[in-house]
Amino acid sequence: MMNVVSRAYVRGGAQVLSTGLKASGVAVNSMANRQAHTDLQVPDFSAYRRDSVKDSRRRNETAEERKAFSYLLVGAGAVGGAYAAKGLVNTFIGSMSASAEVLAMAKIEIKLADIPEGKSVTFKWRGKPLFIRHRTSAEIETERGVATSTLRDPETDDQRVIKPEWLVVIGVCTHLGCVPIANAGDWGGYYCPCHGSHYDASGRIRKGPAPLNLEVPTHEFPNEGLLIVG
């Protein structure tokens, strides 16, 4: 049924087309036949038009002005959008950074005048024990004289300290993480009671199962008598 109708339509269309082609010489087409509405007035849209296009003499010269106005509006919106977007992105990225509370705990400030010479003092820093050792000149001399070829983890004393009198190490044994005992062991530095690792007064592993020297955290001496670790 449908097929018959569509075939009829196609045939009909073909007929129209052929007659249209035949009639083209006498200008009979659908547009030319619409002559009934020429008496209608074109509505007055001047209330909606820009002033610059109402003047028929200037009409063709104001395209840039009109476009500049449109682009200016869009551009102003884009500027506001860019400002808002920057604020939003800043907020989200800022939420990833460490909070002030965490940053305050990340550093430790130590008054060095409280630590007498030859003593090792333990502090808690980032949840780990921190050893600050005020070394005697005899200890400094001994550690400087050690040949790195005899060491398991070769590091010179100068690589491990900033000021030779002050040794700053994290008090976690590099073997299995026990806390070593200060001023003990065969080399007079640190001794780990768990499995018997001996560290010297520079925190270097000398004997026992530990594979590495005690870790030296980043630290600085901003002025005389003050140490900041972190």
Binding site: E64, E65, K67, Y71, L72, G75, A78, V79, A82, Y83
Partner: peptide, 22 residues
Amino acid sequence: KVIYNTLFKRTSTYAVAIIASA
């Protein structure tokens, strides 16, 4: 007219103008 022709006509200068004024 000058602003349109120098800044707004091309997308590249338009974007630069927006970022600079932002």
